[in-house]
Design a protein around this nucleic acid. Structure first.
Lengths: 113, 113
DNA sequence: AAAACTTATCGTAATATTGCGATAGGTATT
DNA sequence: AATACCTATCGCAATATTACGATAAGTTTT
């Protein structure tokens, strides 16, 4: 098929996977890094920093907006994109909680791993 | 096109995006959660817990293995999958450093965002 | 050696993602 | 009103991902 069987997994797993998916393209990482430095929030400035067309960057911005991590505000003829600090820390916490679970591999010793 | 322009972005962004990509499917999250609890490391047991076919789970395990976060060891007729604790904490740190950068949005105040 | 079992890989199909140009729809300027 | 400008969306093409059944390749058991 190819369609992800989202309904078959736990809500927590789906949420984490969605967070990860929002971050799973280098262009989206670079957009977030740019917004973190707060040099500018104007869409056109974001487009200028990336080696991608305006329409492609617009799609990546939409993906970030759909995830909630970024919000866009119309500002005259421009659109200002900002990180949503609430969601930013929420996503950070989700990932932090996940990775703070330390792997034990108790069963496997000493044979494997 | 459809081909990701990986070479155009910074190495740091590519690395982060790859980490995120490894985590971007709920089945892979559930596999990692299962391995974290260390109930078992046997491939067949992982397959049993997921609502996916054996071949599909095998693909997800390959994706996790390719990212480095999981390693597989042949153990008789079975394969034992374990989290690589070095890579686990490395990935955790990468994400932690990223999300510890707090968004400021100084420029935008008070007009937007 | 044969049979049973476990897992990886191949082949295929459906769907999703990435990327771009063209264009539409908005605001500001003239 | 006409023009210039900015951004979102549409349409398309290329590639990647997800999923499954079938099969191959390995080990163990019989």
């Amino acid at each position: 098929m190819g369609k992800s069987k989202t309904q078959s997994f736990s809500e927590e797993s789906n949420t984490l996977a969605e967070v990860a998916k929002a971050l799973s393209h280098p262009a989206r990482i670079e957009i977030l890094k740019f917004l973190l430095t707060a040099e500018s929030c104007v869409c056109g400035d974001i487009v200028s920093t990336l080696p991608l067309s305006q329409s492609t960057v617009s799609q990546h911005l939409k993906a970030l907006k759909d995830s909630g991590i970024v919000k866009g505000t119309i500002s005259g003829p421009n659109v200002c994109y900002c990180i949503n600090p609430i969601i930013w820390s929420k996503f950070g916490n989700l990932l932090s909680v996940f990775f703070n679970k330390k792997p034990q591999n108790l069963i496997c010793e000493p044979t494997c791993c």
